[in-house]
Amino acid sequence: MLRSLLLTAATISAAPAFADVNIYTTRQPELIQPVIDAFTAETGIAVNLAFVSDGLPERLKAEGSRSPADLVMTVDIANLQQIVDADVIQPVDSEVLAAAVPAELRSPENLWFALTTRARIVYASRDRVAEGEVTTYEDLADPKWEGRICTRSGVHNYNLALVSGIIEHHGVEYAKEWAEAVRANLARKPEGNDRAQVRAIWAGECDISLGNTYYMGKMLSDEEQTEWANSVRIEFPVFEGAGTHINVSGIAMTKAAPNKEEALQLMEFLVSPAAQAIYAEENFEYPVLESAELSELVAGWGTFDADTVSLTDLAGHRAEALRVMEEVNFDG
């Protein structure tokens, strides 16, 4: 009996101790916490989240090899490209990630991987816009929309990514003409965030607006904003001859990564069916894993065919997109 107890004690003391995983995130930690809790419950590995609102690439460069961060989580291809350009992340060779994440939703060098997607759609007034009236992004330049469009700043990352899509499909000169025409169709000077545009539709200031899909879920979760949300419906425009513009939330492993093995475990967990369902449900986003279930609310918005252009290619057009929006004085 004594020998058995001694063996048990020796076995316990010899059991490997898992290191924590440290994440720098530009997303509010409460948006990520439910899926992180599921990972810890399954693996016993604790995860520490540090919210970094601005200057993430600069912080990682300043910390260098001393950085405690194993992973970075952020949204939008522009932010992902910034950390690539800063040379602060490392490639990750994982059959699990490669199988789960479509090629156009990850870095060609496996430097970052998308976890969820969101579509850049049109919120349309239920009362003043007929179903099927919104068709393509190109159509937003049609004079029929004069005085009817609201949007946030044209130089916000979300809109620059959309303009990058216009450039990818049609070229810079077309994009400039398109931006000028859309500007002429604005009901007011660009201001506020995506939810503010829906409020403007509800108030009768405009009839359609550009926005990300997940804001519908956020508005319906807010008692004050539910009335705004119910005044519009989601329409999924497409690029002519292509699909609906999407962007991503994504993850990457830092060069420093003191807990590389545990960090990889977390990355692979985040693309599992269970984690994808949790992540998408909590944030009203679309899973990257094809077999993962949509939340009932998101599924109710309808289906769409996503544009399959590489997000890395879109990131390559960002400087041109910014130049286009500044040259047409879109926010002026």
Rank of each mutant, 00 (worst) to 15 (best):
F269P: 03
V182H: 04
E109M: 11
S209I: 05
L294P: 05
S295R: 10
F18K: 00
W112P: 06
T26R: 15
A274S: 10
E261Q: 07
V101L: 10
L264G: 03
A46T: 02
L31D: 13
A179Q: 04
S107R: 06
G192T: 06
N283R: 09
A78D: 14
A181T: 01
L60K: 06
D70R: 00
D331I: 00
M216D: 04
I32N: 00
W228F: 07
L297H: 12
A299Q: 10
F284K: 09
G332E: 15
E191T: 13
N110E: 10
K144I: 04
D87H: 11
G316A: 04
T303P: 13
G217D: 06
E205M: 15
E42M: 02
V134P: 04
G300E: 06
Y174G: 15
E281Y: 06
P91F: 03
L220K: 14
R59A: 03
A257T: 01
L160K: 05
T312C: 12
A257M: 01
S67V: 02
K144Y: 06
Y24M: 02
V288I: 07
Q82M: 14
A299N: 10
I89N: 13
L266C: 00
F236P: 11
Q28W: 15
T151K: 12
D207M: 07
R195C: 10
T26E: 12
R233P: 07
V309P: 09
S153N: 14
E30D: 09
